[in-house]
Computed example of a mutant assay.
Amino acid sequence: MSVKKFLKQASMFMRFLSISSLAALVAGCAGGARVVAETPAPLRIIVFPGAFNWPLWIAQDKGFFASERLAVAITPTPNSTFQMKGLIQGEFDIAMTAMDNVIAYREGQGEAGVDGPDLVAVMGSDAGFLRLVASPESRGYADLRGKTLSVDALTTGYAFVLLELLERHGLLLERDYKTERAGGVLQRYQALLERKHAATILVAPFDAMAQAQGFHRLANATDELGHYQGVVASVRQSWARAQPERVRGYIRAHAQAVDWLREPRNKDEALRIFLAHMPPNTPPQSAETAYHALLSGPESFQRRGQIDLAGVETVVRLRAKFGRLGARLHGAAYYYDPSFHEAAFGNH
């Protein structure tokens, strides 16, 4: 699928428009015309399509972004290389991306052909919700021997989680199986359903959707890896230091949305918001599936955007093991700038 075609299709999936953000600002603030005139350009966010963007949908629809005087323009990405290249080259302001991508591109190990020496995470979102899911005929790790498994990119994202899980069960890359690029989680899910690959790492609730069609979940990554930092808000540090109020506002709005989503009394409205941002043919039951998968377990969304530094250390260890041979990596704190989070909540 071409990037152009993907973006056209994914725009239906996301339904995030800067116009609606500006409309919310007009509706929610006195002196609307004056406020809109003073509103800065939309905050450009790039994300992977999926239910894990639920807090962003809530922040949009409930006016949490508007209350921080933020208009947002959100772009879905087909893969990590498109996302990270766009962030590094200034086409986007914030990337909701895997923590490993931040480390990879900061250390010059990314696949997009560009380096991001000032990339940092400023907020945590979740522990990844990572599941190893296999085809209906693959009921265990042994059934993956001699098969092809899919990844987003060969040296970034969640590929190392896949390699680690299989190695712990006696399977080594190239000796026992091969990998192939398939793109982000939406494309990997589709490729798995089409039987193009025997297994892949999916993000909840894609795993539950696959299981409903006869596929098998072989592992929950956090059960085997322990602490793991999945998605974070990543920025160019130079840009963030020039726009500190916008970064702090984004962190607060996201945290407020997570708190709202986790409140049981908001469940019915949360399900309606979920379905409103999904494609028109999405079955209503998928909202309940997503709610259970993303909110009922210990992973869930991280409160107040608090990053898990122990989880970042796990990401660093996996990159040191499977990444570029001999490359020197830093400790977890090197890849995280806490100043924006601290200032957002007045705990500095």
Rank of each mutant, 00 (worst) to 15 (best):
S2Y: 09
K5V: 10
L7A: 11
K8H: 09
M12C: 05
R15P: 05
F16W: 14
F16E: 11
L22C: 10
L22G: 10
A23E: 12
A24K: 15
L25K: 12
V26P: 00
V26E: 11
C29T: 13
C29N: 08
A33S: 07
V36H: 01
V36Y: 05
A37S: 13
E38Q: 13
T39Q: 14
P40T: 08
R44L: 14
I46Y: 06
V47Q: 10
F48M: 12
F48Q: 11
P55F: 11
Q60H: 11
S67G: 04
A71S: 15
A71V: 03
V72I: 10
F82P: 00
G86Y: 01
E91W: 10
I94R: 03
I103V: 15
R106D: 10
G108N: 08
Q109R: 12
G110L: 07
E111C: 11
A112Q: 04
V114A: 07
G116T: 06
P117V: 10
D118Q: 01
L119C: 05
V122H: 02
M123G: 01
S125E: 11
D126S: 14
F129V: 01
L132C: 04
A134G: 09
E137G: 01
S138D: 12
L144P: 10
K147I: 03
K147Y: 07
T148L: 08
T148C: 08
L149Y: 06
D152R: 02
D152E: 10
T155Y: 11
L163G: 02
L171K: 10
L173A: 11
L173H: 15
E180K: 15
G184T: 10
V185R: 04
V185M: 09
L186K: 12
R195I: 00
I201Q: 06
V203A: 05
D207T: 05
D207H: 02
A208Y: 07
M209S: 05
Q211A: 12
Q211E: 15
Q213L: 14
N220T: 13
A221P: 05
E224A: 10
G230W: 00
Q237Y: 08
Q237I: 00
A240I: 04
R241A: 07
A242C: 00
P244C: 08
R246I: 02
R248T: 03
R248H: 02
R252I: 06
A255N: 07
Q256S: 11
V258W: 14
D259K: 15
E263F: 12
R265C: 02
R265M: 10
K267E: 15
L275H: 06
P279R: 06
N281P: 00
E288I: 06
T289E: 11
G297V: 07
G297A: 11
S300A: 15
R303C: 00
R304F: 05
R304V: 00
R304K: 13
G305M: 09
D308I: 04
A310S: 13
G311P: 08
V312R: 09
R317T: 09
L318M: 09
R319E: 11
A320E: 14
K321T: 05
K321H: 13
K321G: 02
G326T: 07
G326E: 14
A327E: 13
A327W: 01
Y335P: 07
Y335E: 03
Y335Q: 04
S339V: 06
A343C: 01
N347K: 14
